[in-house]
Every structure is written in structure tokens, then in C-alpha cells.
């Protein structure tokens, strides 16, 4: 038995006790998260990019002249040659079309976040419900959902996205939804189902049924809360795969979007600078490094969360 913390009594109101309990839990989890180290590094990188994204509109409306610094239609008239290397005026230089790279980077960060989180939220909502329903009901529901999952997993993700973007104009919103649906009904749903299977056989589920609880009550009150830690972990991994897919598709010039990190590399490539790393490094590194960093930090956060939700992985 572990050391017990002072038991909370209900001298004050119930909801305050509950809030206190939630805070206790959060504190414990945070402590475990911090102990896992890598997650903190990941979180720091994520916060750094979030600040960049937030700072962009502020800079645009204060110190940056719109005609020069607009990430899409701006042009730097001060430079004689485009692309221009980093200078005080353009800390990360300009691209072959004379646009400020730092501004592009910051502008894109926001849409990367939105894309990633949208995909993640869609994945988790679908995946959790699919997993819980398939495990709880079994039989025909399970069969249909799992065959659907097979189809989703069989489809080669990037190729499907290429075909789709050729057929319909795909923007960030559509991309996020597609990735979310593919992963939610596919891999994430299957993983969450296998977790849910170990929950639905627990006696407390049977006790809830004997008490008169219906399927909705049991799924929402007993199954889903026990899936949430794992689904949160998969949420992090979905963010990573969404950002990465977006980069690939924009690099191929298949997305109907104004600016993104992938598109920045695409611009570099189409102007013929992609192989000239030594001459025009500022064209390649900021975007590619950002993709790598942001993807890996979400992954690191996911790994640390894994240790938080999986006490078996915690070091004694």
C-alpha cells in the first residue's frame, strides 16, 4: 500500500471537494510528467512555437509594414538580390520571391497548430466512441466498425490525400478532418477498442449493469474515462502525423493553401534552391527544422504522457 494523503472530508461543499481532488490528481500527474524529462523539453518547444504564432498578428499591426512583411504578397524592396541572406531587417532572410521568411514561419505556425489540433480532436472523438462501442456491444456493431477500420488502415494515407486533393480543393480544414477521420476510424479506433475490451470485462461494469445502468451510462461513465489517457496519447501522435502529412502535400504543391512550412520548402524547390544548401541555407532550414521540431515535440509529450497514464512504465 502506498502512503495515504490526508483524507479529504466533506466539511465544505461537495463541488469544492471534487475540485480539490481533481487538482490533487493533476498535481500528481504533472509530477510524473516532469519526472519523465523529455516531455518537458517537448512542451517547451510547443510553447515556443505557440508564442511565435501568437506574436505574428501583433507584429504585423505594429512594427512590420504590411506591404513588405505580408507572408504571401509582401515584397522586400530594400534588397537588391532575392533571396537575400539574413539581415537586421529580415532576421531569417527573404525567399526567392522577396518575402520575409520569419514572417512566413510565424504565420504558418498558427495554421499548423490549428490543423494538428483539429485532426487530433476529430481522431480522439471518433476513436474513443468507435473503440468503446465496438468493445461494449460486440457482435454486429463490432464487426462493422472493425471492417471499416480495416479499410481505413489498408488505404495508404498520403496517396489517398493526393487523390483527394486532386479531385477537390483541400485546405487546412478539410485536411484536418480527413486525417482525423482516417485515424479515428482506423488505427486509433482499433487501439482504443483493445483497451476498451479490457475495461468492459471488469466487474464494475457488471455492477453498473446490475444497478440498472444502460449502455450510454456505462460507456460514458465507465468506459470512456478509462480510455481517455490512452486516447490523449494518440491525440499527440495524430498531431505529429497531421503536421507531417501537410508538409508532404504542400511540398508536392497539392494543397489549396496560402502559406505553410511545406509550401515554403516547395517555393525553395521550384526556384531551384533546394540542393544549394550552402548558398541559400536560410531558405531550407527554418521551415524544415520547424517541421521536425514541432512534430518531435508532440511525440515527446506523447511519450511522457504514456509514462503518466501507464504506471507500469514509471520507475519505482
Amino acid at each position: 500500500m502506498d502512503v495515504q494523503r490526508a483524507p479529504r472530508s466533506v466539511d465544505h461543499s461537495l463541488w469544492r471537494t471534487r475540485l480539490g481532488l481533481a487538482a490533487d490528481r493533476l498535481r500528481e500527474n504533472w509530477a510524473a510528467f516532469v519526472r519523465a524529462r523529455v516531455g518537458v523539453i517537448g512542451l517547451a518547444v510547443i510553447i515556443f512555437y505557440a508564442l511565435l504564432a501568437a506574436a505574428h498578428p501583433v507584429l504585423m499591426s505594429t512594427v512590420w509594414d504590411e506591404s513588405i512583411y505580408d507572408p504571401v504578397v509582401g515584397y522586400s524592396f530594400d534588397e537588391t538580390r532575392q533571396p537575400a541572406p539574413p539581415s537586421l531587417r529580415h532576421p531569417l532572410g527573404t525567399d526567392p520571391l522577396g518575402r520575409d521568411i520569419l514572417s512566413q514561419l510565424m504565420f504558418s505556425a498558427r495554421s499548423e497548430f490549428m490543423l494538428g489540433l483539429l485532426a487530433a480532436v476529430v481522431t480522439v472523438c471518433i476513436g474513443t466512441m468507435v473503440g468503446a462501442a465496438a468493445a461494449y456491444f460486440g457482435g454486429i456493431v463490432d464487426t462493422i466498425l472493425m471492417r471499416l477500420a480495416d479499410i481505413m488502415i489498408m488505404m495508404p494515407g498520403i496517396s489517398v490525400l493526393i487523390v483527394l486533393s486532386a479531385l477537390i480543393g483541400v485546405e487546412h480544414l478539410e485536411l484536418g478532418l480527413i486525417i482525423g477521420v482516417l485515424s479515428g476510424f482506423g488505427g486509433t479506433g482499433v487501439v482504443l477498442k483493445s483497451q476498451a475490451l479490457s475495461v468492459v470485462v471488469k466487474p464494475y461494469i457488471q455492477a453498473a449493469r446490475v444497478a440498472g445502468g444502460g449502455p450510454l451510462h456505462i460507456i460514458l461513465v465507465h468506459v470512456v474515462p478509462n480510455l481517455l489517457p490512452l486516447s490523449f496519447l494518440y491525440m499527440m501522435f495524430t498531431v505529429t502525423s497531421a503536421i507531417f502529412s501537410e508538409a508532404v502535400l504542400s511540398f508536392l504543391g497539392l494543397l489549396d493553401i496560402r502559406m505553410s512550412w511545406g509550401l515554403m520548402i516547395h517555393t525553395t524547390e521550384s526556384a531551384g534552391y533546394l540542393t544549394q544548401v550552402t548558398e541559400a541555407w536560410w531558405l531550407i532550414f527554418p521551415a524544415s527544422l520547424s517541421i521536425t521540431l514541432l512534430c518531435s515535440s508532440f511525440y515527446l509529450v506523447g511519450r511522457s504522457l504514456d509514462e503518466v497514464v501507464n504506471p507500469r512504465l514509471r520507475r519505482a
Binding site: K202, P203, A207, A211, G212, P225, N226
Partner: peptide, 20 residues
């Protein structure tokens, strides 16, 4: 295994009264 690890003693005992 007969108590949901994420629910308190109160939540567990009150459940039958609640669903009924």
C-alpha cells in the same frame, strides 16, 4: 476490480441510486 479506479467511494456507492 469491482471498483472503477477513476471513481471515488461516493461515486461508486451512489451509482445505483443515480441510475435509478
Amino acid at each position: 476490480e469491482s471498483m472503477n479506479p477513476r471513481r471515488t467511494v461516493f461515486d461508486t456507492i451512489v451509482e445505483p441510486l443515480k441510475v435509478q
